[in-house]
């Protein structure tokens, strides 16, 4: 290898692993000396380049990123977004609290008390359900009906979604009222009071069971509630 191309290669890449260069340096001590000189100069250059880094620079960089992240989060959410988020949350929470903690359960209840469904149930059961029949079904919930709750037109097991309930349709003064008996463990999230288009609902705990009453008249619902509280035992 000629002198010039050897020098060019060494100057361009002092740490070259090119076998031709290595061989050329082995064959010619002068070339090896030149190579060593360039390597020494590179070591000096590396030292000269290693200028001191500002104190705590790494910590500063980490801190700066954290602050930026923080301020960006704040900037990214101007007041109207925050307001919108609050409104959305209030609406969401109200929705949940109004209709049910377990919205599915409330919806399932509504599905069981539409007129068409209730008429079918009443038609299947007849006009009156005796206390004995009710108590046979109440046994599932370890409960007994021993008092007066009104004229029960229908008493059937219904699944509110996946939750088994005993659905009773009771004749009130002005209309039909629904009473559901469910296991409390499955319906904990249901709110005490809920309502939707013209329907009023209330639920309350009675020992191990939960009673849910839904009707279109608030007064009748609360009247049945009072009656049920003393008529049922679990």
């Amino acid at each position: 290898m000629d002198e010039l191309s050897f020098r060019r290669t060494i100057y361009a890449e002092p740490n070259t692993t090119d076998p031709d260069i290595i061989q050329a340096a082995k064959d010619d001590p002068a070339k090896q000396v030149f190579w060593d000189e360039v390597k020494a100069m590179d070591a000096q250059l590396a030292q000269a380049m290693s200028i001191p880094v500002p104190e705590n620079f790494a910590d500063k960089l980490i801190l700066r990123q954290g602050m930026d992240e923080f301020s960006q989060k704040r900037q990214k959410r101007p007041w109207y977004i925050a307001l919108a988020a609050s409104v959305a949350m209030v609406v969401g929470v109200s929705y949940v609290t109004l209709f049910a903690g377990n919205n599915g359960l409330a919806n399932d209840i509504y599905a069981h008390i539409n007129h068409e469904y209730m008429n079918k149930e009443i038609a299947m059961t007849g006009q009156h359900v005796s206390q004995n029949v009710i108590n046979e079904k109440m046994a599932t919930f370890n409960g007994v009906l021993s008092g007066e709750i009104g004229d029960v037109l229908s008493a059937n097991y219904c699944y509110l979604g996946t939750i088994k309930s005993l659905h009773m349709i009771i004749k009130g003064k002005t209309g039909l009222i629904n009473l559901f008996v469910v296991d409390n463990n499955n319906s904990k999230e249901l709110k005490e009071d809920f309502s939707t288009n013209g329907l009023v609902g209330t639920s309350f705990l009675l020992q191990s069971a939960k009673i849910i009453i839904v009707g279109d008249d608030k007064e009748q619902v609360s009247h049945l509630q009072t009656a049920a509280q003393s008529a049922f035992r679990f």
């Binding site: 060019r8 100057y11 361009a12 890449e13 100069m41 590179d42």
Partner: peptide
């Protein structure tokens, strides 16, 4: 490579 060569050469 040419630039690296020239850089060291200048230094």
């Amino acid at each position: 490579m040419t630039r690296l060569f020239r850089a060291r050469n200048q230094i």
